[in-house]
Design a protein around this nucleic acid. Structure first.
Length: 408
RNA sequence: GGAGGGAUUUCCGAGUGGUUAAAGGGGGCAGACUGUAAAUCUGUUGGCGAACGCCUUCGAAGGUUCAAAUCCUUCUCCCUCCA
């Protein structure tokens, strides 16, 4: 069987490793417990986290044991790594609720049966720490000089770094030590922005317990221009279907840049590398095929086969020449609300396709609104029963935002 | 604790009494081109209104003035230097 280190390396995950040769050997030799931490800063995981989940999944398939660490304790402090501003403080209730949401989502991606994977929360050991004993046991092993030289703090040196955030690195290092002691965790992985925090943990384990543990970071998911992926104008791409619908999720991947297709296929799907290379090498409009596969595969992993198919069918119907009933975001309208007819702008407002009437007017004046594929020319156009076929009407905003209105 | 600097629309950032819903850029949205791509170009980008216009906005609250983002007072927050 192939060493999972080579798999990760071949697929382009790996950015930095503490002891490359030794770690590779370790992973080839025995089942290894490793962890990735997730701070509970939102009520759902997003695409950035998904890369980490993919790594955990690859590792688990190779017989290693993942620990998903939920940062119920560290989130109380706030990780300054790579951030220009201090994060807003979350209340303990918010953090707990977020942690619960994460927990549910992890269960979909990893096999937690029979101890094949663990889920822990660092609130369990961080929240009740006593300041002085902690300083004496752990704090002595850190020099401020060294900490200050960490890349993670660079962006904060001119803007200011509060003491609470400065402590984050120590918290995370302590996590590693705890996991090493509790469940023999030998490896911490994470996004490359975590490198400073990870080596702090590796060092701490060595100093305190004379233990050899490893660290590895992955490439952050960025576009070929270096912009973080998984963000859109309306925010992150979430894994929670309530926050990002499977259709929108599919569309996001369907529309990635040509240059990013190969990277996404390799990081976000389990397709064999020969196929990834083949698809990634397609040129011109041919690459749309690769994008369809990418979108389908990622949607399938996150939302399941059925949702992925629905999204795919909807996309084909809307963008192809077929006609039929597409499963796109929709809203309902009662015949009472419709009455004798409803003006187009009010209808747009009801569907939340626009945020103000002025925006709607502008949109129509610029030719960006279509009803049943007919461009709307008149901002006063009245929508009546006649516009509904089979009790439904399709609104299109711009080139690719569709919304169905169902008459009830 | 002392001295100085700052807070502007979604973000950055100009603006020091009326011509300012506020330059410029980023971002967003739409159009053209295309491959449901990128790049490019064009338009647009506080709310209500067809429009004249009206309303809300320049950290907060007061005040001066016919008129304030711009002047005064107090307050809040941030930064820099000194202790």
């Amino acid at each position: 069987m192939k060493n999972v280190f080579d798999i990760l390396s071949e697929r382009g995950f790996i950015e930095q490793v503490t002891h490359e040769e030794e770690l590779r050997e370790q992973l080839g030799k025995e089942s290894t417990t490793f962890y990735i931490g997730f701070d509970a800063t939102a009520d759902s995981l997003h695409v950035g986290h998904f890369v980490q989940i993919m790594v955990m999944s690859h590792m688990q398939k190779a017989g290693h044991r993942p620990i998903a660490l939920i940062g119920g304790g560290t989130t109380m402090v706030g990780d300054p790594s790579g951030k220009t501003d201090m994060r807003k403080m979350l209340t303990i209730e918010e953090i707990q609720a977020n942690g619960e949401a994460f927990k549910k989502q992890f269960s979909k991606f990893l096999d937690f049966s029979e101890g094949k994977a663990l889920m822990v929360n660092n609130a369990d050991w961080l929240l009740n720490l006593e300041y002085i004993p902690f300083l004496r046991e752990i704090g002595v092993h850190f020099t401020v000089n060294r900490m200050l030289s960490a890349e993670a703090f660079k962006s904060r040196m001119d803007r200011g770094l509060s003491f609470i955030e400065f402590n984050y690195m120590i918290m995370q290092a302590y996590d590693f030590l705890q996991l090493h002691r509790r469940v023999d965790c030998k490896l911490q992985m994470g996004g490359n922005d975590q490198w400073s925090n990870i080596i702090a943990g590796v060092d701490l384990c060595r100093r305190v317990d004379s233990a050899t543990v490893y660290g590895m970071t992955f490439k952050l998911l960025t576009t070929s221009e270096g912009i973080k992926m998984g963000k859109t104008e309306s925010g992150a791409i979430w894994l929670d279907p309530e926050k990002t619908s499977p259709y929108d999720f599919y569309q996001y991947w369907r529309n990635v840049n040509d240059a990013d297709v190969k990277n996404c296929l390799s990081l976000l799907t389990f397709l064999p590398m020969e196929e990834v290379n083949k698809l990634g090498g397609l040129e011109g409009s041919e690459i749309n095929k690769a994008k369809e596969i990418l979108a389908f595969e990622v949607t399938r992993l996150v939302h399941g086969e059925e949702e992925a198919k629905k999204a795919e069918v909807a996309a084909k119907l809307l963008f192809g020449d077929f006609s039929g009933d597409a499963d796109v975001p929709s809203s309902e309208l009662s015949s009472k609300e419709l009455g004798e007819g409803l003006d187009i702008i009010s209808l747009l407002q009801k569907t939340q396709l626009i945020s103000s009437r002025g925006e709607g007017r502008r949109l129509i004046q610029q030719g960006g609104i279509y009803i049943n594929d007919q461009r709307v020319e008149d901002i006063y156009q009245n929508i009546t029963l006649e516009d509904f076929a089979d009790n439904s009407l399709m609104i299109r905003k711009g080139k690719k935002i569709y919304h169905k209105v169902i008459l009830i």
